[in-house]
Simulated scan of single mutants.
Amino acid sequence: MFDKINTMIHETLGPAGPLILVAGLAVLLILSTIPMMLSQKPDPLDKLNEGAQKKMDAQQRAVLRDKKRNEKLNKYAQFLEPQDAKELSEIKMKLLQAGYRSKDAVQIYYFMQFVLGIGLLAAGTLYYVLFIDPETATMQTKLYYILGPGIVGYMAPKYWVNKRVEKRKDEIQSGFPDALDMMLVCVEAGQSMEQSILRVAKELRASYPALADEYEIISHEMKAGKDRGQVLNDMSERCGLQDVTSFVTVLNQAQTFGTSISDALRVYAAEMRDKRVMRAEEAANKLPTKMTLTTMMLTVPPLLIILVSPSIVGIANMGNMSP
């Protein structure tokens, strides 16, 4: 009986008949369950839970997004901002470390990614259509001219922010020992911690503007009544440097145990000066290794040309003179 059915299926649908029949039965079963699922009455408890969840999500989104920001960008906030609180916090901190403190910084960042990605993708497609022959172009060529510009445009804001973060960290690290020395002088002269920070910010403005901005921020936050320990911890997160984190720990411990801030600053400032000298010596020791390859590339070829060229010319002349 089964052989007859199998033979009929093969004669009717071909060699793939059994597979087609099984796939068709699966589709029919799926379609038959859809009306049953739609006809089920919703559970009142599920409806209450769904309403509470929607209300909670709306409140959470309202907390995550500030309604006082740019109205044009805020209309598309759900597309220009991460909906996850952790991801939003990470990108905010990244932009703060790059020096972008605007309320619209996150939205502008994702907007630039979208605009540059779509714009360069359209430009690459237009260039491919106008100047590249589709018949002779390979798949690699198509991806290079069409998707390549779009990927570059999408990654350009991220690359720019990362470069800004690294540049800002280098600037803060370079000026931090000088800032500690100035702060130590101000504290030993009788000024308070808040006055010392504000004075150091003014003195560092010309040489290290990024570090001066950080000192001004913590000065304003202290004047606003924010806790000093929290202000200093926020500064260490914005800077993202181990030296600043250690400095914040030293000040918090001095405040907690009631020890002299000037003594703590004196010891830590001396340590920072030593670390700066060590970093300079490390860079100087790396320089000969980096110069070796460049020196060989720029010196050896001209030297070989000067030494070998007369011999080559002489051999060529002798070859021409021979009968």
Rank of each mutant, 00 (worst) to 15 (best):
T12M: 12
L198A: 03
D43A: 08
I151R: 00
L120K: 00
R164N: 05
S174K: 14
G117W: 04
P288V: 07
T259D: 10
M139A: 11
L25M: 07
A201G: 04
F257E: 11
Q230H: 04
E71C: 09
P134T: 00
L95T: 00
M8E: 11
V308C: 15
V231K: 05
A254S: 13
N49Q: 14
T299C: 11
I306V: 15
L298T: 01
K167F: 10
R279G: 12
V231H: 06
F247C: 01
Y215F: 13
G314A: 14
M37I: 13
A264K: 07
D46R: 15
L241I: 02
A269F: 06
P82Q: 02
D243R: 02
G148M: 00
G229Q: 12
M222D: 03
L303G: 01
E214R: 09
K158S: 02
S309E: 11
I20E: 09
V115Y: 01
P209F: 11
A264S: 15
N6H: 10
L45I: 15
L307Q: 08
T299G: 12
S260E: 03
E135T: 11
P15H: 04
A137G: 04
P134C: 04
E50Q: 12
Y110K: 14
L88N: 09
I261D: 00
T136R: 07
S32K: 13
A201K: 05
N49V: 07
L143W: 06
L287G: 00
D274Q: 14
P310Y: 06
K68F: 06
K94G: 03
K202R: 04
L180M: 08
K103S: 10
M182C: 03
M318N: 10
Q60A: 11
D84F: 10
I5N: 05
L126E: 01
A210M: 06
L251I: 15
E203Y: 04
L96N: 12
V313F: 11
E282D: 12
M318I: 14
I218R: 04
Q230M: 12
V300E: 02
M235G: 13
R238L: 05
M321V: 07
A122Q: 03
M291H: 03
H10M: 15
A62K: 13
V27Q: 00
M321C: 07
L121F: 02
I30L: 13
L48K: 15
I9G: 06
E282M: 14
L31D: 04
Q230S: 08
R61Y: 06
D43E: 04
D133Y: 01
L198K: 05
V187P: 03
G314C: 10
V267Q: 13
I91H: 07
M318A: 09
F114K: 07
V22C: 01
E71Q: 14
K75D: 13
L19A: 12
D213H: 12
V187T: 06
L45P: 09
C239N: 03
E237A: 12
L307V: 14
Y128A: 08
A85G: 14
L64E: 05
Y109V: 02
V106D: 01
L147A: 03
R168I: 03
V187C: 04
V185R: 03
I20A: 13
P323R: 11
T245F: 05
E194D: 08
K275G: 07
N320T: 15
K286A: 06
M56E: 12
I132V: 14
P301N: 10
E87Y: 07
K68E: 09
G229W: 09
V250I: 15
K86L: 09
Y109F: 14
Q97P: 00
I146S: 02
